[in-house]
Design a protein around this nucleic acid. Structure first.
Length: 293
RNA sequence: GGCCCGGUAGCUCAGUUGGUAGAGCAACGGACUGAAAAUCCGUGUGUCGCCGGUUCAAUCCCGGCUUGGGCCA
């Protein structure tokens, strides 16, 4: 059985997952796209080893900061661990707010090996021309992707060039059940309360030395790492480059976190059969009920 | 006490030479298959401060009141 502990940022998922793991004798698989990276600590609110209380964490703090992790790699890594833990009958707690990572690991998402290709000519195109180019090779995909969504348009073209298939031909299995037996839990919060928690968390991060952490990392790795897409890092880098003041950086982090939480809520609402709970007892009760009914 | 400027969306403000109004931010809703803490899309009825007057018609013009700011006493 896989217990997925997810939901928006700043709701206290980590502590819930550790308590649940202890009570079930389970192990945790990280499903947070930025907790995989080494070195991102304060800004990602990464739980500390001493808080684990002996609970084993997988896929956590193991990728070099200048490496580029992806959902395809995560799927592969996560499934290996899932299979192993299932074989050994160990309850699995999948913990994290990265909805697409969870989706890719637990559902029938398909990724093929692909070659690196040079997208330079497409990079140079404006949004409209780029979208026209996609339309020429994959009409259906173009219809589904808004021309302004440059990243997705580009990716659809890349799929065609690197895999020789159209993006729209990849089987998308909607409303399909997960590949494993699993249940999805999130911690229930009033949205206003959540927004207040975000303000105090970000303020705390600043007091704990977020600027110092980002400064050290950017000096060591440069400013252009994929890992620095994380909220809390990109805004501080802007500040260190002199683009924004410290106060602006702080308020940018707060509003970006808020927007992110909102997007997560939308994603979970539609993608997973969520159970919103207030305590770990709720999880155990619901899971038990689900098994016996 | 006198003079001047303001009161329009949750916030900051546009605007209507009189025909009941719109930007940014915020908020809310949504999409999501190799960067996902990413990327993108959609949604604006608000006593236009209050009360009167003029007018076919007032958020706009006129008078009074109220309220905030500034200047002068």
């Amino acid at each position: 059985m896989i217990y997925v502990i997810t939901g928006p940022t700043c709701t206290g998922k980590d502590a819930f997952a550790i308590e649940l793991a202890k009570r079930l004798g389970g192990e945790i698989i990280n499903a947070d796209a930025f907790h995989v990276y080494k070195g991102l600590i304060i800004g990602t609110n990464k739980p500390k080893e001493e808080d684990f209380q002996g609970v084993k964490h997988h896929l956590f703090d193991f990728i070099e900061l200048d490496d580029n992790y992806s959902i395809a790699r995560y799927q592969k890594d996560a499934r290996l661990i899932i299979e192993d833990l299932l074989d050994r009958n160990i309850p699995i707690i999948m913990l994290g707010g990265s909805g697409l990572y969870i989706k890719a690991a637990l559902f029938d998402y398909r990724f093929k090996e692909e070659d690196k290709i040079d997208m330079a000519i497409y990079d140079a195109m404006d949004n409209k021309t780029l979208h026209e180019s996609l339309k020429a090779i994959d009409h259906a995909a173009a219809n589904n992707i808004h021309p302004n969504n440059r990243r997705r348009v580009m990716r659809a073209i890349q799929i065609f060039l690197a895999q020789g298939i159209r993006k729209s031909d990849i089987p998308i299995l909607r409303n399909e059940r997960p590949l494993y037996e699993c249940m999805f839990f999130g911690i229930e919060f009033d949205r206003g309360d959540l927004y207040l928690r975000i303000v105090s968390r970000v303020t705390r991060m600043m007091n704990e030395g977020l600027i110092r952490e980002v400064k050290q990392l950017s000096e060591k790795y440069g400013d252009n790492q994929q890992a620095f897409n994380a909220i809390g890092y990109k805004e501080i880098i802007e500040h260190l480059q002199g683009i924004t003041s410290k106060e602006e950086a702080l308020s940018n982090i707060i509003s970006n976190t808020r927007h992110y939480a909102k997007r997560q809520i939308t994603f979970f609402r539609h993608q997973f059969d969520m159970h919103w709970v207030k305590t770990v007892d709720d999880i155990i009760r619901i899971a038990h009920h689900g098994k016996t009914s």
